[in-house]
Design a protein around this nucleic acid. Structure first.
Length: 492
DNA sequence: TTTTGAGTTGTTCGA
DNA sequence: GTCGAACAACTCAAA
């Protein structure tokens, strides 16, 4: 192997280990990093921005903003330990080879991912270094349960959530998370890297992310703060409160988990400790853990059925008569459907990079069942606009709502956007926040402004078709069409 | 192998 | 206003 000048300087020192960060932007409870640090050898942490991997869903704009701030946070964490996080951009395999040359490293450690393109990349990295004297080691840690460890009695992957989760829980409590020891042996040579600012991950002209700092604090500290405030407040009424978008009963942890800033095991154990301290919380905590379970389940599904992002899991749905309607799709994306609950959700998404879970189901049901637009269109939009965009959760969630997924909702479950709003946004607080043109509308008509008498509309300053749209489809007709379309799947 | 019970989140209709 | 039943048939998981 050709030694670069830097590596030559290093002769006589222990060879360093490269820790290749991916969607695991933390230092605690990260088995691969733990192993690297424990070896006593110098550790060179790096992050590679590779937008060109084949089959790769390149990060959307919202996720890029998060990535930027998460990397700042991770770099700070390393800096406090006297270690530099190396940033590089481009094709992963050749950049890793370059880094090995630059530093004389003889090992690369990383945490596995479950997206098909990502595990293909792992294979390529393995293959590239197989014949060189470089050890490539893959670790877990991004899930509580690795897919290989959970199977039904026939040794096959589960396709139904409840038995899957029972099986996971049957193994007892997962291992206790481990903080990284304070000391990482540092690599004393400078390693060439790029400046984060040059990556231009944050939007400008216009900077539509300006208000995000008020809501989000990317990085491990921010993640822990979210967990702590949830366990102080949201958890006490989680089972009910989690369905009300105007309340802050959910964790809002999803972007932190998506970037691996906190390990799911750590979240699990913090919730468990809260339940231990207050036995009245046990039921609520179990409910919360099962939400972590859905994250596990969708990653298991993606691992075992890698075409879930592309096509219907249930074969008969592959001939569903989806419509192509750019106008309706655009109205949905912009939050201009004329159904206040749907519009509120879509505008929350656009403005904050987030949408409450209950509302995600409502808007997804509306797109796929009222508008009969393909769930992939919805998944693509979510991918671009969500801070927590994650292939496993996003694809299986959309397929679940559309009815084509594993363990999907029954065909007749078509959300009524009017009654959902009345049921889960009782005081109308959520709608009034995100659809301000309706803020003075009386509760009685808030979810169905088209039914309000002209005099009411005038008195609250709403002119339908002018400053708020008429509904783009009629609920009853749309429901009937959806049922007919679903019934057509049964005919051969 | 066969059988049996069950399957995240809903809506509508009629009594 | 409240309540229970119907809304398909199928697949999965386990006994």
């Amino acid at each position: 192997m050709i030694q670069s000048p830097l590596a030559a300087v290093a002769i006589g020192m222990k060879k360093p280990i490269i820790y290749w960060h991916r969607q695991d932007l933390r230092t605690d409870d990260l088995p691969g990093l733990q192993a690297a640090a424990a070896s006593g050898r110098p550790v060179i942490p790096c992050y590679i921005l590779d937008d060109g991997a084949p089959g790769h869903w390149a990060m959307g704009g919202a996720s890029r903003w998060w990535l930027h701030h998460s990397l700042v946070s991770l770099a700070d964490d390393y800096a406090s330990r006297g270690v530099v996080l190396v940033l590089r951009r481009g094709e992963t395999v050749s950049l890793l080879e370059q880094l090995v040359q630059d530093t004389g490293a003889d090992s690369i450690f990383f945490s596995r991912m479950y997206e098909p393109w990502a595990s293909d990349l792992e294979q390529k990295v393995n293959a590239a270094f197989a014949e060189q004297d470089v050890q490539v080691k893959r670790y877990g840690g991004s899930l509580v349960f690795e897919p290989e460890t959970i199977a039904n009695l026939s040794g096959k992957p589960y396709k139904v959530f409840t038995p899957f989760w029972r099986r996971c829980r049957a193994g007892g409590e997962p291992a206790v998370p481990k903080a990284l020891a304070q000391t990482i042996t540092q690599w004393s040579q400078p390693v060439p890297g790029e400046n984060l600012a040059d990556w231009q991950l944050c939007p400008r002209n216009p900077d539509w992310s300006a208000q995000w700092h008020h809501m989000w604090s990317p990085g491990t500290q921010g993640a822990r703060a979210k967990v702590a405030s949830f366990l102080r407040q949201g958890i006490t009424n989680y089972s009910e409160g989690r369905n009300q978008p105007a309340l802050q009963c959910t964790t809002r942890l999803s972007p932190h988990l998506a970037f691996g800033e906190i390990s799911p095991r750590e979240v699990w154990h913090r919730a468990r400790s809260a339940a231990a301290a207050d036995t009245g919380l046990e039921g609520q905590v179990d409910k919360f853990l099962s939400e972590l379970g859905w994250r596990e389940f969708s990653h298991h599904l993606l691992h075992h059925f890698p075409d879930i992002p592309e096509r219907a899991f249930k074969e008969q749905f592959r001939r569903f008569p989806w419509l192509v309607d750019k106008g309706n799709l655009l109205a949905w994306q912009r939050g201009q459907t004329g159904y206040p609950m749907v519009d509120a959700g879509m505008r929350e998404l656009w403005q904050t990079g987030f949408m409450h879970n209950r509302v995600r189901m409502i808007v997804a049901s509306f797109l796929t069942k009222h508008l009969l637009i393909h769930w992939r269109q919805g998944a693509n939009w979510f991918w671009d606009t969500l801070l927590d965009a994650n292939l496993a959760n996003n694809s299986s969630g959309w397929q679940w709502v559309a009815g084509s997924g594993a363990d999907a909702s029954p065909y007749f479950r078509i959300f009524n956007p009017i009654t959902q709003g009345e049921k889960f946004d009782v005081g109308g607080e959520y709608i009034r926040q995100w659809v301000p043109e309706l803020s003075r509308m009386p509760d009685r008509y808030l979810n169905c402004p088209w039914e309000a008498p002209q005099s009411v509309l005038e008195s609250v300053g709403v002119a339908l078709g002018d400053n708020y749209p008429f509904p783009i489809v009629d609920h009853k007709c749309a429901r009937a069409s959806a049922l007919a379309a679903l019934a057509s799947l049964g005919e051969n």
